[in-house]
């Protein structure tokens, strides 16, 4: 991997984000709000991986919910059934999803575009069946319950605020790592890969190695998110890791725009919050929320279509235009 550079453009937005994000539990004791935002953080971690894979390296995966699931079940199993410490569960989830990502990436590298998407779709469906049928490990269709809260140095993190801080702490680390990665030599090669594969080959970029590495990183991030989710929620079931979730993750990456981390992160926040709109909009009536939840898929679909039509380049494109306007005004 290339050397990571610390850049002022990375530090300032991250510091602002950190202050804003970490202040929430001090301002509000609303457990529901904190839980929703914790869930948002989990999705931000997965979507960051999708942004690297899709937005920077130009690879499509319709199987990332499976890595999310593998991470969740791995950590749930080794911590709950085998009694490993929580951190070891997280490590096991990352290792297993990295290996899974490597195994899926190697044959998939011969494929491009739609065919790669189909291969990852197949992987996702295979894993969904495994989650349902491997009852001894996963609890089958009834799900896996009684997963303990995360604990560090023997102290259980069982409050809504504690979990919120834990997840967003990880989000910060993941975003800092990814921001450095895309600015590094490897990140430049990733953007080149998206721009022109034959150009990248002419530059002597090892396409195979690069694609495998990005695939493994994105799978590991989904696995990490899964391990966090399982312990924060305490219960997991196969429906959480279905094709529907994979599609939603791709939608977040597409909506966010390419060659950007901020865009997909915003998209993840937006789309994850829609079904829980009452947590962020005080006074939203029960019936209005139910309508939103019933029409959730349509709201997603319409949002994506609207963005495609009115905001070319996704949220990242909009962010670039706003910052260009700011530069001109300043």
């Amino acid at each position: 991997m290339g050397r990571a550079r610390i850049d002022i453009r990375t530090i300032v937005p991250l510091a602002l984000l950190a202050v804003l994000v970490f202040g929430v539990p001090l301002l509000s004791a609303d457990r529901y709000l904190l839980k929703v935002l914790t869930f948002v953080g989990v999705n931000v971690i997965i979507v960051t991986g999708m942004a690297l894979l899709f937005g920077y390296a130009g690879q499509v995966s319709l199987g990332h919910a499976a890595f999310y699931g593998i991470g969740a079940y791995t950590s749930a199993y080794v911590v709950t059934s085998l009694g490993w410490p929580w951190l070891a569960g997280v490590a096991a989830a990352i290792v297993l999803t990295s290996v899974g990502g490597l195994l899926l990436a190697l044959p998939s590298l011969r494929l491009k575009g739609h065919y790669l998407a189909m291969a990852t779709l197949g992987f996702g469906e295979i894993m969904r069946v495994v989650f349902v049928e491997a009852r001894g490990l996963t609890g089958g269709p009834d799900g896996f319950s009684g997963i303990p809260f995360p604990s560090l140095v023997g102290i259980s993190i069982d409050s809504a605020g504690g979990n919120y801080w834990l997840i967003w702490g990880v989000v910060t680390v993941v975003l800092a790592f990814s921001a450095n990665l895309v600015r590094s030599r490897v990140g430049r090669a990733m953007r080149a890969l998206h721009g022109s594969e034959s150009g990248a080959l002419a530059c002597g970029i090892d396409l195979t190695g690069l694609k495998v590495r990005v695939f493994v990183i994105s799978a590991a991030l989904a696995g990490l998110a899964g391990a966090l989710y399982a312990h924060v929620v305490g219960f997991i079931s196969p429906s959480t890791f279905s094709l529907h979730v994979s599609v939603l993750l791709v939608a977040m990456a597409v909506l966010g725009g390419t060659r950007s981390l901020a865009g997909p992160v915003l998209a993840a926040i937006l789309l994850t919050t829609i079904p829980f709109a009452d947590a962020v909009i005080p006074g939203l009536s029960r019936s209005a929320l139910e309508t939103i939840q019933e029409w959730q898929e349509d709201v997603y679909g319409l949002t994506i279509i609207a963005v495609m039509i009115f905001v070319p380049g996704g949220l990242a494109g909009a962010l670039r235009r706003i910052s260009a306007l700011g530069r001109r005004a300043g």
Binding site: R188, R191, A192, G195, S196, S198, G199, A202, R259
Partner: peptide, 12 residues
């Protein structure tokens, strides 16, 4: 190699 059609990275 300077490839046919240049194969530059347009957005970069």
């Amino acid at each position: 190699l300077v490839p046919e059609g240049r194969m530059l990275f347009g957005p970069m």
